[in-house]
Amino acid sequence: MRRFTLFTLLYFAAGVCFTAIAMQSADMTANLKTTLLVEAGLLYLFAVLSTFSFWRQAVLRSHNRVRDRSIWQQNFVAIAPWLVIVLVVIESISNLLGQNWTTEAIAKASLGLPIVLVCAENLLPETKPWNKSTS
Rank of each mutant, 00 (worst) to 15 (best):
Phe76Gly: 15
Gln73Ala: 13
Leu97Asn: 10
Arg67Ala: 15
Arg67Pro: 13
Gln99Trp: 00
Gln73Ile: 13
Leu111Glu: 05
Arg56Lys: 15
Ala105Asp: 10
Val89Tyr: 04
Ala107Arg: 03
Asn100Glu: 13
Lys33Met: 07
Lys108Asn: 12
Arg65Thr: 14
Val59Asn: 09
Ala40Phe: 10
Ser94Asn: 14
Phe54Thr: 13
Asn122Asp: 11
Ser94Tyr: 10
Ile79Val: 06
Trp55Asp: 04
Ser50Ile: 03
Arg67Gly: 08
Leu124Tyr: 12
Pro129Thr: 14
Ser94Leu: 10
Phe54Pro: 01
Gly112Met: 01
Ala47Asp: 03
Ser53Arg: 11
Leu113Pro: 00
Lys128Leu: 15
Val84Gly: 04
Trp82Phe: 08
Leu42Asn: 10
Leu43Trp: 00
Leu49Pro: 04
Leu87Gly: 09
Gln57Trp: 12
Thr127Ala: 10
Leu83Gly: 13
Cys119Gln: 00
Cys119Lys: 00
Val118Ser: 02
Leu124Phe: 12
Gly41Gln: 10
Gln99Lys: 05
Phe76Arg: 08
Thr29His: 07
Ala26Glu: 15
Leu117Phe: 02
Ala58Trp: 05
Asn64Trp: 03
Lys108Gly: 06
Leu113Lys: 00
Arg61Val: 11
Arg67Met: 09
Lys33Glu: 09
Asn122Ala: 14
Val59His: 11
Leu49Met: 12
Leu32Trp: 12
Ala107Gln: 04
Leu117Trp: 00
Glu121Gly: 06
Asn64Glu: 15
Val84Tyr: 02
Leu87His: 04
Leu32Tyr: 07
Ile90Cys: 11
Val88Thr: 11
Ala47Ile: 02
Asn95Trp: 03
Phe54Arg: 08
Ser70Val: 08
Arg61His: 14
Leu83Asn: 08
Leu124Glu: 07
Asn75His: 15
Gln57His: 11
Asp27Thr: 14
Leu123Pro: 00
Leu43Gln: 02
Val86Gly: 04
Asn95Ser: 11
Arg61Ile: 14
Ala78Gln: 06
Gly98His: 10
Leu45Met: 11
Gln73Arg: 10
Val118Leu: 07
Ser50His: 12
Ala58Cys: 10
Ile115His: 02
Ala47Glu: 02
Lys33Val: 05
Ser70Leu: 09
Val118Phe: 00
Ser25Asp: 03
Ala120Ser: 15
Glu39Val: 12
Asn31Pro: 03
Leu45Val: 07
Leu37Asn: 11
Thr34Arg: 07
Leu124Cys: 14
Gly41Ala: 08
Leu83Ile: 05
Leu83Gln: 09
Ala80Trp: 00
Gln24Gly: 13
Ser70Met: 13
Leu97Thr: 13
Asp27Lys: 01
Cys119Gly: 04
Leu113Asn: 03
Phe46Asn: 02
Tyr44Thr: 07
Val88Ile: 12
Ser94Asp: 08
Gly112Arg: 01
Cys119Phe: 01
Asn31Tyr: 04
Ile85Phe: 00
Asp68Pro: 09
Leu42Cys: 12
Val48Arg: 03
Glu121Val: 01
Asn31Met: 08
Asn100Pro: 01
Leu36Thr: 06
Gly112Cys: 01
Met28Val: 03
Ala107Thr: 00
Asn122Ser: 15
Ser62Ile: 11
Leu96Gly: 09
Glu39Cys: 15
Ile71Ala: 07
Ser53Gly: 04
Val77Pro: 01
Met28Asn: 00
Ser62Leu: 11
Leu60Thr: 12
Ser92His: 05
Thr34Val: 06
Ile90Ser: 13
Asn100Leu: 05
Ala30His: 14
Phe52Glu: 08
Trp101Ser: 06
Ser110Phe: 01
